[in-house]
Simulated scan of single mutants.
Amino acid sequence: MIQVNQTTISEQAVMAEVQYHPASTKRAATLKAAESLIIGELLRQRANALELVTSTNPAEEERILDELIAREVAIPTATEKECEQYYKQNPKRFESSPLLEISHILLAASPDDDNARVEAKARSEIIIEQLQQGERFADLARRYSACPSKETDGNLGQISRGQTVAEFERQIFNAQPGLMPQGIESRYGIHVVYIHRKIEGQTLPFNAVKQRISDYLNEKVRRKALAQYIHQLIIEAEIHGYDFNLSDSPLMQ
């Protein structure tokens, strides 16, 4: 049982809340649930103190919370100068994705079939050697590939980041044009890859990303201001049955 300024939060309420706070252990989930209920109660009590009408309707509660925050929390907005400074300090964040034009030969093998993956790896080495000796990629793709792209000689066309699985993407976007000297492993098997062309990403102009930067910085400041506001409510409250000093929540960092 938890007391928050004379208001009781029962053990049953905490247990019911646990389902909304997945964690690596039951104890961690329980702590998160308790913390969430305590913070919610503190916000309700503060809204009552300011004579904001509370409600059990979730949409109405959200509106009241927004009104409470607007009244109680000063949240500055990012200036254009701050946005431009962030842009200059983080140029890699604002590059367009490189474009690759590639062909591949997929030697299918399930992730949990070790024998099939060993065989696929060995086959990929043979195919790469054949290609290095002058065999046509299109011919070998049509003969060996398990991907539908074999009907177009293994050609996947132009791809950018986010269009392929992560383990495949990591390898190809760090490679240079030409035949990759080793097969690439993915959840689908082993890929023999030829990169026909690589167009490097370009830094986007500031005006094209200014709004995105502003939204990011404003949300970051908002979260920090809310955390400080809630922290102050916790300090001023009488809370029994829960110790925020034992919490590893980001709120308390």
Results as ranks from 00 to 15, higher is better:
G134I: 11
I213G: 00
A33W: 02
I102F: 04
I2P: 00
G162T: 09
N174C: 02
I128G: 00
E125Q: 14
L131Q: 11
S24V: 11
T203G: 06
T79Q: 07
E80C: 05
R123H: 12
Q130H: 15
S186H: 06
Q158Y: 12
T8M: 06
Y144N: 03
L37K: 03
Q6W: 08
L42H: 12
E200G: 05
I39V: 12
E82W: 12
K224T: 11
I75M: 05
I69G: 00
R212Y: 06
S110K: 07
S124H: 12
V209G: 03
Y194N: 14
L107N: 00
G162M: 10
Q89E: 12
E51N: 09
F137D: 09
D66A: 06
P181C: 11
I235G: 03
L251N: 12
Y188H: 10
L156G: 03
R27A: 14
T164H: 13
A146P: 06
G183W: 03
Y20I: 02
E72D: 01
I102D: 02
D153K: 10
F137V: 14
T79W: 04
I234L: 10
Q130D: 15
E167H: 05
K121C: 12
L246S: 06
E135N: 08
K121I: 09
F137P: 12
N90E: 02
N115D: 11
Q163Y: 15
S247T: 00
V193A: 13
Q130Y: 15
G201Q: 08
L100A: 00
Q133F: 15
D215H: 13
Q158R: 15
L179I: 02
G178S: 01
A138G: 11
F173M: 08
E135I: 02
H21W: 14
E101Y: 02
